[in-house]
Structures are given as C-alpha cells and as structure tokens.
C-alpha cells in the first residue's frame, strides 16, 4: 500500500492524542487549572491535528461532513462519529478541569471509553479489509490499541503503568510482524484463484494491460523501501519501545531531569511509532497486485 504521509500522521498522532485523553478522562493525572490546560492542549492538538491530516488525502475534503452518515455499515463513518463524540465529551470534561477545577468523573469515564473506541474504529478501517491479508488480523486492533495506551501512559506520566504498557505494545508489535509476514501466503489467495485458471497449470502474468502505471499500481503496489524493512523494524522497535522503557526506568533525581527524560521518551516513542506505521502501510500487500504479477 502507498504509505501516504496524511494517513501515517493521522493514525500516529490521533492514536497518541486519544491515548492521552483516555488517561486524562480517568483522572490520571487529576490535573486542574493551567496544568490541565497544557495537558488538554497537547491531547486535543494531537487528536484533532491527526484527524485534520486525514482529510488531506481526500479528493473532496469539503464533503467530509457527509462521512458521518453511514455508521450502520462503514467503519470509517463510525470512526468519524466516535471521534466527534469523544472530543465533545472530553472537551466538556476539560472545561470542568481547567476552568471550574472540578472533575466530572462519569463524563471523564465516558470520554475515556469513547477515546479508546475511536482508536478501535480507526484500526477496524484497516482490519476489515480482506483484500489486505496483513491487516485482516485480530492483531491489527490489538496493535493500534496497545500503541495508543502505551503512548498515552507515557504522555500522561503514568509511571507505574507505562513500562508494562510499553512491554505489551512491543510484544504485540513483534507478534504482528511475525504473523503479518505469513499473512498473504496463508490467505489462500494467489494468481491461481485470482484468475480462476489455477487448475489448468501454473499461471504467470504475461503482459500487463498497459505499458505505463495506473492508480491501482500507485496506490496498492508500493515496493519502494521494502528492502529496508528489517532494518526499519529494528529502528522502529528500538525507538518506540526499548529506548522509552530505558529512559523512564533509569532512576534519576530531580524533577527537571526526570521531565527531560520523560520528554525524550515521548519523542523517541513517537518517532518509533511513525516508522512502525510507515511499515504498516508500505509492507501491506493488496491482492490486486497479484493480477499484475506483483505483491
């Protein structure tokens, strides 16, 4: 799949933002006033910024509002509905925390669950696609949710939980890569089933429909950079999970040093997740590539 910067930025940043909103909604940390303002500004900046980025790749962004209508069948529509609901609930909760110094616990819980539901619906947009076996696995929502929770824990300074969530997210990432590498071959779809000619012999794509490229090849058969995949996986794993874990577990004295370490942990995690998300798209093989003798 073509790793469009807009979707990589969208899924990474909004995942992190909604992860932070989840913890804030649960009152972790139970901040009020100016400190709360800073926390919520970061969370909303990430979540809303990501959502806005997702509209950049649309052919007609001005019609994006129509995407709220088909929540009965479409995960993309459900995501839009969930995102707005989560932002409204957490916006009200943030108003209480920042200006009224009060935490409306029930609203916070609702907002937290809606934030998590948004991340889940995002993941389901990809998971539902049978055409991309590498995405069509239970591990895809597990990965989006565990990344969001780990990132949210890091950003919210949940010291007790963050190391465990990072370990879980790292484990899910490794499992996703391992199972994903065998997904297309294990899906049972190949050029033989694509053409229905498999029973007659070995099928080979002899001549493509045209000499140039087309939308399908640009969008679905992205092979640039795949050769670096293993190296990028090591970089991604190190930055997203190993280094942040190290940075938050090193015993340091002094609030300032501790916060600087935490900042680096967050930035490293973010960079690692961006690489991981690039791989998520760039390595995904769409079955339409089979018709062109490619994967």
């Amino acid at each position: 799949m073509h790793p469009a910067p807009s979707v990589i930025i969208f899924t990474t940043f909004s995942g992190l933002g909604f992860g932070l909103l989840f913890f804030l909604g649960l009152g972790q940390p139970a901040v009020t006033g100016l400190v709360a303002f800073v926390f919520y500004a970061i969370a909303f900046g990430l979540a809303v910024g990501g959502l806005l980025a997702s509209t950049f790749h649309l052919g007609h962004p001005e019609r994006a509002w129509k995407a709220f209508s088909q929540w009965r069948s479409s995960w993309l529509s459900r995501e839009g509905v969930c995102a707005v609901a989560a932002l409204v609930a957490m916006g009200l909760f943030a108003f209480g925390a920042v200006f009224l110094h009060s935490h409306w616990t029930l609203l916070g819980w609702i907002g937290a669950l809606l934030s998590l539901a948004t991340v889940f619906t995002t993941s389901m947009i990809y998971t539902q696609l049978k055409t991309i076996p590498r995405w069509n696995m239970n591990l895809t929502p597990a990965m989006f949710l565990s990344f969001s929770l780990a990132g949210g824990a890091l950003l919210s300074g949940a010291e007790a939980l963050a190391p465990w969530l990072l370990i879980v997210a790292g484990a899910v990432q490794l499992a996703y890569w391992t199972r994903g590498d065998a997904a297309l071959d294990g899906s049972g779809t190949n050029l033989a089933t694509a053409t229905g000619l498999g029973s007659r012999g070995t099928v080979r794509a002899f001549e493509p429909p045209h000499t140039g490229t087309n939308y399908l090849l640009r969008e679905f058969v992205h092979v640039v950079g795949r050769k670096h995949a293993q190296r990028l996986r090591v970089i991604s794993f190190g930055l997203a999970f190993a280094l942040p874990l190290l940075l938050i577990l090193i015993p340091v004295t002094g609030v300032v040093v501790k916060h600087i370490f935490a900042l680096f942990a967050v930035l490293s995690h973010l960079a690692g997740i961006l690489v991981s998300r690039w791989l998520f798209f760039a390595q995904a093989e769409h079955v339409v590539g089979l018709y062109y003798g490619k994967r």
């Binding site: 052919g59 007609h60 696609l129 049978k130 055409t131 991309i132 399908l216 769409h286 339409v288």
Partner: peptide, 27 residues
C-alpha cells in the same frame, strides 16, 4: 456528488475495479 474521494472502496475491492479519477477526485 456524495463521493469524498477517500479511496476506501478501492482498497476493499479485490479486483481493482475502482479507480480514483485524478482530475475529478472521485471514484
């Protein structure tokens, strides 16, 4: 007139039957 050009329908089609028109921005 309702298509936002998100491309998800083309992603979901195993046959490559849908193509985004680059000039019009619709499927």
């Amino acid at each position: 007139s309702d298509c936002i050009g998100c491309g998800l329908c083309a992603w979901s089609c195993p046959y490559g039957a849908r193509e985004m028109d680059m000039a019009e921005g619709v499927m």
